[in-house]
């Protein structure tokens, strides 16, 4: 079963993190990634740039609306995604618990519904 761990946390700029803080954070994520790979559950990850460079796109009744900023303006923002392949929710929750961002943010665990390979839609089993 494939799960997405959605990392929501206050952005570094908003809470004023120092370079050392960021370096420590990167080291923690480095460890986490190695652990995921060692366990053979890692599928992919994308860590996102801040919402200050985010742009939203909507079309309603054929009308295009492009706006600056994120989809929802909240204190904690979607900052990244880890996709993992594990047998069940308990295993996914254990990995979410180990994610460094769980200590200062909120990890939302969502089962993946469909993914794609080439032109093929695939339902991960």
């Amino acid at each position: 079963m494939r799960y997405a761990l959605l990392l929501n946390y206050p952005e570094a700029g908003d809470v004023g993190l120092s370079d050392e803080d960021l370096a420590a954070g990167r080291a923690a994520f480095d460890e986490y990634l190695k652990a995921l790979n060692t366990a053979g559950v890692f599928v992919s990850t994308e860590i996102l740039q801040p919402v200050s460079v985010s742009t939203t796109v909507t079309t309603r009744n054929g009308e295009l609306l492009i706006q600056d900023g994120p989809f929802a303006d909240t204190k904690e923002k979607l900052g990244g995604v880890f996709v993992i392949e594990v047998p069940n929710l308990d295993a996914a929750l254990t990995w979410a618990e180990r994610c460094p961002a769980a200590q200062y943010g909120v990890i939302e665990v969502r089962p993946v519904a469909v993914t794609a390979q080439g032109d093929e839609w695939i339902t991960p089993s």
Binding site: M1, P87, N88, L89, D90, V109, P111
Partner: peptide
């Protein structure tokens, strides 16, 4: 069913 909560004794 959808989140696959396991039928397992912890």
């Amino acid at each position: 069913r959808d989140a696959r909560i396991p039928f397992a004794v912890p």
